[in-house]
Amino acid sequence: MSNVWGDAIVEAFRDMMMRMALFFPKLLALVSFIVVGILVGLTMKAVLQHLLRAARADVLSERWGLQASLAKAGFTQPFSQIVGRLAFWTVFVIFIFMGVDALGLPTTADLMGQLVGYLPSVIAAGLLILVGVLLGNFLAEATLIATVNAQIQEARFIAGLVRWGIFLFTAAMVLTQLGIAKEIVVAAFSIVFGGVILALAIAVGLGGRNIARDALERRWRKAKETDERDDMAHL
């Protein structure tokens, strides 16, 4: 009886030690991946920031209005720093997943393979969001200034339409890229976009009758136009 009991304990202890002996290197691998991930991430961040600064990316991003759009989206740091941080976290997360994969847990098996397979879509979606937000803000600002200078009273509304139209379009593209409910997104986008166009057509047809009449009058009745304009030479 005591032998059986002793054997069981020894067996269990041996199994435990065996498992630990097998698991410990994996745990060490995880820790190593975390440490290496941090180091590689930091190196990547520093190199990228250095390269971007050397390529005058911060100056260019300001010139193209990118910095102002990023600031509006809550990113107040220079463009090179934002990209550097993004690179660090991307590298770090990849190493974390590699570490978790190295643990060999049944629930996380092939996690890395799936992640790597999905990564291009995620990166493409991230780029789409960036371009969409920047383009939306840039074109909305250009539209606002142009319409104010043309003294169109609905300037802000038109600029808002441009901004949200581009955001909507971007959102649909991002979801399609990520493969999330593709059919629903396409259908929803078609409905919303079609609805907006229809609403605009109705608005112009009904609400804009006077504007259309004025515009036509201005075009064909020169007398009225000369009343409204002046012959001032600014230069």
């Binding site: 606002l144 200034i145 104010v148 200078n149 003294q151 409204e228 002046d230 012959d231 001032m232």
Partner: peptide, 26 residues
């Protein structure tokens, strides 16, 4: 004196004051 439409100029400024404030603030 040329024919000058001051009202139109003031309307231009007034609209800027109403719609371009976020841009001027930058």
């Amino acid at each position: 004196t040329e024919s000058i439409n001051v009202e139109r100029m003031i309307n231009g400024f007034r609209q800027g004051l109403r719609d371009l404030l976020p841009v001027w603030q930058i």
